[in-house]
């Protein structure tokens, strides 16, 4: 892992706790509820139960039933109510239990959440965050495993964010809550309870729209986000043993994409592998390819490769590891672009 000297120093100077991704999210919510009375949480089972993944654990107890609100089982209803609250100066954070449960609220997001600022020429802005655990690989039932970030990256008027580790999870969440525009915050549930990281106790933010170079190399640029980061890193580690080194970039924000970090790396390596678990056709990977086409076409030394979920509904969990990109598939793609 590459960490800038400044960042390492700034981290050593502050009090930190060793947290998992889900704990970092809980901590970020806790910090922001404490900062601003206009911020509140809405969702199914977020109160007494602390959320099905415990993202809001202990928050209702601390901030009360009016700040951490258990809603009816009604995604369109409570996303819509959050829109009304945001019209009226509140800053709701909405939890969708699983990204695959967002579909009843799709109309609210497509017709109001994303359009209100434009529709009212800025008279009303919706400072709201929609949090949703996403992705496959945890043996959950049908619909619970979707990775449909591309639907939302395609919608003008909402930013789409997806952390892959505890530090970014808290920092990006705080940036999302403070952003004056709607943000869809996708949480890789497969990484919720994985690796712990030192997370500063105080409030800090990670800028939206900025990717991060997490591993440096010369031969290939590997682009991923969320739950695909460990997959990509396992593959690039294997490749390193074969003498192939990669830039590995965690994009972190899927709209707007960090065009500069992408093009800078691609202009160095000339080879590209994109890894995402969402379906291939029309996935965010296509957009990345388009950006590279516009910024770095003449630097390319091989056709760009995608390693993605397939154009099939995410299967039940007996086959989920076949659906998901694996380090082996990523390694093959890396070899392919190197050997072109």
């Amino acid at each position: 892992m590459v960490m800038s000297k400044e960042l390492a120093e700034s981290r050593s100077a502050v009090k930190t706790n060793s947290l998992t991704v889900i704990q970092a999210i809980n901590n970020g919510l806790n910090v922001m509820l404490g900062k601003d009375k206009h911020t509140l949480i809405l969702g199914e089972d977020v109160g007494k139960n602390g959320g099905v993944f415990r993202a809001t654990d202990g928050l209702q107890e601390k901030f009360g039933e009016n700040r951490v609100v258990d809603t009816p089982l009604s995604e369109a209803g409570f996303v819509g109510a959050a829109v009304g609250m945001a019209f009226n100066g509140l800053r709701p954070i909405v939890e969708i239990q699983f990204l695959g449960f967002i579909y009843p609220a799709f109309e609210q997001i497509a017709t109001h959440v994303t359009r209100t600022r434009t529709r009212t020429l800025g008279h009303y802005n919706l400072q709201m965050v929609i949090r949703a655990p996403y992705g496959s690989g945890v043996r959950s039932p049908e619909i619970h495993s979707d990775s449909v970030e591309a639907f939302f990256a395609h919608m003008p008027g909402i930013k789409v964010v997806c952390p892959s580790n505890a530090y970014d999870a808290k920092g990006l969440l705080i940036a999302a809550i403070e952003d004056p525009d709607p943000v869809l915050f996708l949480e890789p549930m497969r990484l919720y309870r994985g690796k712990r990281e030192d997370v500063p106790e105080a409030k800090y933010s990670v800028e939206l729209g900025k990717g991060k170079l997490v591993e440096q190399g010369d031969d290939v640029t590997v682009l991923a986000w969320g739950a695909m980061m460990p997959v990509a890193l396992t593959a690039t580690e294997q490749m390193r043993q074969h003498g192939i080194t990669c830039d590995v970039i965690d994009l972190r924000t899927l709209y707007p994409l960090d065009k500069d970090i992408i093009s800078e790396s691609v202009q160095k390596t000339g080879r590209v592998v994109i890894v995402h678990e969402g379906h291939e056709t029309g996935g965010v990977g296509s957009e990345i390819i388009s950006i590279i086409n516009n910024t770095s076409f003449l630097y390319l030394r091989a056709p760009m490769e995608r390693v993605t979920g397939f154009d099939v509904p995410v299967p039940l969990f007996a086959l989920e590891n076949d659906y998901l990109p694996t380090p082996e598939r990523v390694s093959q793609a890396i070899r392919k672009v190197v050997n072109f």
């Binding site: 009016n66 409570f78 109510a81 829109v83 009304g84 609250m85 019209f87 109309e107 109001h112």
Partner: peptide, 17 residues
Amino acid sequence: ATHLPHAAGAAMAETYK
């Protein structure tokens, strides 16, 4: 009908305030 939940939310915000 998409604005019915908005009216509910705006009204809930008034109660909140």
